[in-house]
Write a protein that binds this DNA or RNA. Structure first.
Lengths: 216, 216
DNA sequence: TAGATTGTTAATCGATTAACAATC
DNA sequence: TAGATTGTTAATCGATTAACAATC
């Protein structure tokens, strides 16, 4: 790569794999000092070359014959993915899915700290989930601006998702993690990650159906 | 495509989009008789040609100038994705995430009927979530075989996921929808769909970080 | 040193996008 | 008919995989 050439942006699949390598490395951290791309690949049913390519994006330099220093690789991935730089998030929709996300301990390590939850249901408002309070929707804007929150997680029913997205945008949020199975209409500068479980299930069902119907 | 040429299998992204088209069509079903690829694309921020290509995989024949008959397209997608052919499923892990999935009303329409839930926690065993009973893990094998269950949903903590997968395989399950952030070791004939929320979050965080750090 | 492993450039593969004839 | 839209073949783009020199 020359100085004039723009650094190629990492493909999304590579980002996802880097996260997977990270969890594997955490398990192995105390067992070995170095790890090779081949070892990582064997563990995850991937091919070494793909692992090497992915890791190359982080900029770490490996040692021929040895591989990568495990602790250093962990730290490099964390920096590369931006996990040091904690970002505050609001979660909207304190139903079962919202609760599951709030209680999941792993996200804090990934640089995301959910600092408040919101719901429209009067019965839920005022309760706590773990250490997080459930507040009324009306407070989103004021609090998001005051606390400089940049990430919103949408776990409300499909019908209300767009309305909530609009509120979050007004409140200055720039990234949305959306669990409602709708394509949100958002200004182009917004960052969105859609989690459409129905779509994933569709893939599973189709594959299963193909298996059951056709030869095999 | 000639008779000797194998029918190309549909790409996974196309499958996911077909599911998205399906939800859009459901909303429009009573408003219009025909819909064009252009209209679908406009609604979903896609391009018409991609919509046409995806729809072509289902085998439906559209009418030039008019587009596709909405009701017929809905039915065609459902048949193509195998939603008519209901498959029984077991869910293992009745925590918040498991509950969220059990209560989600949409999956039945997608050809998946969760008929029982299992958990290791004595306190949960015997309770009901919606209309579904929570049973002890030990019953999985016997019941799966008796009820010819083919799909297993794993919503247990990461550490126990592989063990549960092993039990499900022994019980004759052939498709696993896995929400634990681990790569399960499975025989090659198993169909798996991994739902790794941490990986998705990693993508979101990286994009946000890039936005915040660099120009823009 | 010999050999394993990295890093990088090139080839392949598959999905997306473009082009255009066929059709109502 | 004229024009919009489908269906299909070709071109492009980007991710994956292969090849191989550089390195410890």
């Amino acid at each position: 790569m020359t100085a004039t050439e723009a650094k190629k942006t990492i493909p999304v699949p590579s980002l996802k794999r880097l996260n997977i390598y990270h969890s594997l490395l955490n398990q192995l951290e105390n067992e070995q000092e170095y790890i090779s791309a081949t070892q990582i690949a064997d563990n995850l049913n991937l091919i070494p070359i793909q692992v090497r390519k992915d890791i190359a994006f982080t900029g770490i330099i490996g040692k021929p014959k040895l591989g990568y220093n495990v602790k250093k690789l962990i730290a490099t991935i964390e920096t590369f993915l931006g996990w040091n730089n904690t970002k505050n998030a609001f979660l909207v929709g304190a139903g079962d899915l919202g609760k599951a996300i709030l209680k999941y301990p792993g996200f804090k390590k990934l640089g995301l700290e959910i600092i408040a939850a919101f719901d429209a249901d009067q019965e839920k408002i005022g309760t706590s989930i773990g250490e997080i309070q459930v507040l009324p929707i009306e407070k989103i804007k004021e609090l998001a601006i005051r606390m400089k929150v940049k990430v919103g997680i949408i776990t409300v029913p499909t019908e209300t998702a767009q309305g909530i997205a609009d509120i979050l945008i007004e409140a200055g949020i720039i990234a949305i993690w959306n669990f409602a199975p709708v394509k949100l209409k958002l200004p182009s500068h917004l960052i969105v990650q859609n989690e459409n479980l129905a779509s994933s299930l569709a893939v599973l069902c189709k594959q299963l159906n193909t298996r059951l119907t056709h030869k095999n």
